[in-house]
Design a protein around this nucleic acid. Structure first.
Lengths: 106, 106
DNA sequence: GCTATAGTTCGATGCTCGTCGTACTGAACG
DNA sequence: CGTTCAGTACGACGAGCATCGAACTATAGC
């Protein structure tokens, strides 16, 4: 069964946005790279990103980012488009994303 | 012997200040609380902080923060005074500390 | 010299995490 | 219907981590 209710790792996991969870999600180099690549504002599929890990590992990292509320996912046909949750992050932790991206993108 | 050379967890661990390491150091609730309490700019000893963990655990957390370059330590008699490395953090990751403190202090 | 105090170090323990390959699901396209 | 493609779920494995108590070091005070 899969009725698309509020799964823990559902697409737009709208939780209280815990700061430790967000910081932990950003503390992994692979996830930091993902977030960095997602920062162009466009939607990306898992495959369209430049990651050096296996597919399942990539899926795991997206799950962590999703559960922390850092990214959201939208299914469209075969693909799942991922988006940085810029507004939600900015609302909860103003300036945090900017500070992280400023140094990780360079 | 202890000639005060460059130990890995020396007082003023001046490394390249890795962003993942800093984020990981800040991603633990206990350490976040420590940093938050250190944010008044004053120096604190381990004992003068309000932490709920054992002494050895506290020492461990300070070590992690030290190795990430988030805090530095100064020995004076029996006590070790800890300081937030505001300048170093601001130089490496401008705005990051502010963004973290703004939401964790409230 | 003893004792109290502040912190570190040292196992030990149990949990979490990052990684992988494989199996699975679900959609598109013949 | 069968196949391919995108992504997830499931173990499994090794490493790291948070936690503790106990032993240790070093300083200060008596």
């Amino acid at each position: 069964m899969s009725l698309a209710v509020a799964d823990p790792a559902e697409v737009g996991a709208v939780g209280p946005l815990s700061l430790p969870a967000v910081l932990h999600a950003l503390s992994d180099p692979v996830r930091l790279s993902i977030v960095s690549q997602l920062a162009d504002g466009a939607e990306h599929t898992c495959n369209s990103l430049d990651v050096t890990v296996a597919k399942s590992t990539c899926s795991h990292h997206f799950r962590v980012l999703r559960e922390a509320g850092v990214v959201s996912q939208r299914a469209d046909g075969k693909c799942r488009f991922n988006r940085l949750e810029v507004e939600a992050l900015e609302a909860s932790f103003p300036g945090l994303l900017d500070a992280v991206l400023r140094t990780s993108q360079r």
